[in-house]
Amino acid sequence: MGKVFSHSKSLRNISTHYCAGCGHGIAHRLIAEVVDELNIREQVIAVAPVGCAVIAYDYWDFDCSEAAHGRALAVATAIKRVRPQNIVFTYQGDGDLAAIGTNETIHAANRGENLTVIFINNAVYGMTGGQMAPTTLLGQKTATTPQGRKPEEGYPLKISEMLALLAGVKYIERTALSSPQEVMKTKKAIRQAFQNQIDHVGFSLVEILSPCPTYWAMPPRQALDWINNVMAKEFPLGRIK
C-alpha cells in the first residue's frame, strides 16, 4: 500500500510545550500544511508573537523573526516592504494583536499591507497565567477578573469587525478549532489568506477561536463545546469581509 499521509515538511518533528487540549498545535500544523501545499516554504518569513506561541519558530521549519509584544505587524510591514518577493505572515494572540499591539494592527491594516495575519483568539492571556484578555467574555472568570468580567472592565473587543471597516483590509474570516469540520474550514481560510498575499490582494486576517482548557478551567472536550455554545455566540463564525 502506498503512503497516504506524511508529516508536514514545514513542521519540525518535535513535541510542543503546549498544554493538553490547547489549540496552538493544531493552528501551527494547519499553517505548515498550507505552506507545504502552496509550495512556499522557502519563501516564507514568519513573525512570532509574545505569548504562548513565542517559540513558534522552534516548531516551524522556515525563516522566522521574533517581535516585541504587540509589534509583530510593524516588523512584518518592514519585512514585506524590503522583501516583497517573500511570503510574510504574523501569528498573534488576542493580547498581542488586540491589546498591546492594537495600534500596530490597525495601522498595518489601514495601510493595506500585503500580509497574512493568523489571529488566535482564546479569550485569555495564557503565557502569563490566565489574566483577562481584550476578548474575554462578560462573566468569564480569569486571574484578574475573579468575579467574572464586568462591563466596566470592558466588553469583548471585536477587533476583526473593527478592522473590516478599513478600506485597506481585503479579507477577514473568523473560524474555530472546535470540531474536525471547523478545523477544515479554518485550514481553508488560512489557505485563502496566504493565496491572497501570493495574488497581491492585500491585508488578510483569519481569526481563530482556539481552546485554552487550562485557563478556562475545563477538560479539553468541554472547552470545545464552550467555543461552539458560548464563545461563538459573542464572536460569530464566518466571513466578515
Binding site: A67, A68, A78, V82, N103, I106
Partner: peptide, 25 residues
C-alpha cells in the same frame, strides 16, 4: 522604502524588521 509610522514604537520595530532581513535601515 520610506514609511511614516503610526508611532515611535512602530517606527523602531519596522527598523527591526528591515534590519532582520538584511537591509541597511
Amino acid at each position: 522604502v520610506f514609511i511614516q509610522a503610526e508611532s515611535e514604537l512602530a517606527a523602531i520595530n519596522m527598523v527591526f524588521g528591515a534590519a532582520a532581513c538584511g537591509a541597511r535601515a
